[in-house]
């Protein structure tokens, strides 16, 4: 046991004690404000946004601006990773699996697409949403790359297309937000700006939320698959 180790263990121990003490202390006067904000969301959220999934309602309507921000974070991550990846020289990379795997993957891909888009489009009705759907779509590319390999010469174009999609998704998000301003309200306005909210529980409802979900889904799917491609390329 070196001094450093003892010191760091002691420090970690102290930190743990401090955390627990803090939590205990914070538990004492917990409900003096009664969380009126969350009460409001629970009671009024569905009327306000016509989105059954309250988390989506908060994510894309009440706090849509945060979502724009977090989408930007992924955007930047994909941008920097693709920027720093070296242009690879190898032309074809693939693994040898049994034919069963190839068949199964080919079979599964359309369903994955359907599942991904289902998650995106039903984001305001059921658990899911743009992020989850986007991740599912990204897994399609991951699966395909792992099983069938990738032809580098074609990949350049694919990457370029994906990056275009990503940018389009981000720009689309902002533009949908701007629609609220066009109709005389604030950025990212939804129900107040008079967009068709429809009836809670229907697919076409909740104004801009499904569209924002779609944009986010496209964006996340593209970004994550870019990140994956670049990481794979770096590892080789």
């Amino acid at each position: 046991m070196t001094f450093k180790k003892v010191y760091s263990l002691g420090l970690i121990f102290l930190l743990g004690i401090l955390l627990v003490v803090t939590f205990m202390n914070f538990n004492q006067n917990n409900f003096n404000n009664n969380y009126d904000l969350s009460e409001y969301y629970i009671n009024q959220g569905v009327q306000d946004t016509k989105s059954i999934n309250l988390v989506t309602a908060i994510l894309f309507d009440y706090r849509g601006f945060d979502t724009l921000g977090e989408a930007t974070v992924i955007f930047i991550a994909a941008l920097i990773i693709s920027l720093l990846t070296k242009r690879s020289t190898s032309s074809l990379v693939y693994n040898n699996f049994s034919p069963l795997v190839y068949q199964n993957i080919s079979f599964i891909v359309p369903f994955l697409y359907i599942f991904g888009f289902y998650l995106i489009f039903y984001g305001h009705l059921s658990p899911g949403g743009g992020f989850a759907g986007g991740v599912v779509i990204a897994t399609i590319f991951v699966l395909l790359t792992i099983t069938f390999g990738v032809r580098r010469t074609r990949e350049e174009d694919v990457l370029r297309a994906k990056s275009l999609l990503e940018n389009l998704g981000m720009a689309g998000f902002v533009i949908i937000g701007l629609l609220g301003m066009v109709s005389g309200y604030n950025f990212l306005a939804n129900g107040q700006a008079g967009f068709y909210l429809g009836e809670a529980g229907k697919l076409i409802s909740a104004g801009t939320i499904p569209w924002l979900n779609l944009m986010t889904g496209i964006k996340v799917g593209a970004s994550l698959s870019i990140i994956f491609n670049c990481l794979v390329r770096e590892v080789e």
Binding site: L37, D61, Y62, G64, F65
Partner: peptide, 13 residues
């Protein structure tokens, strides 16, 4: 002051 999404009364950002 600017209320994003026109959510006033502390609902939004």
């Amino acid at each position: 002051e600017y209320f994003l999404g026109s959510w006033e009364k502390l609902l939004g950002i």
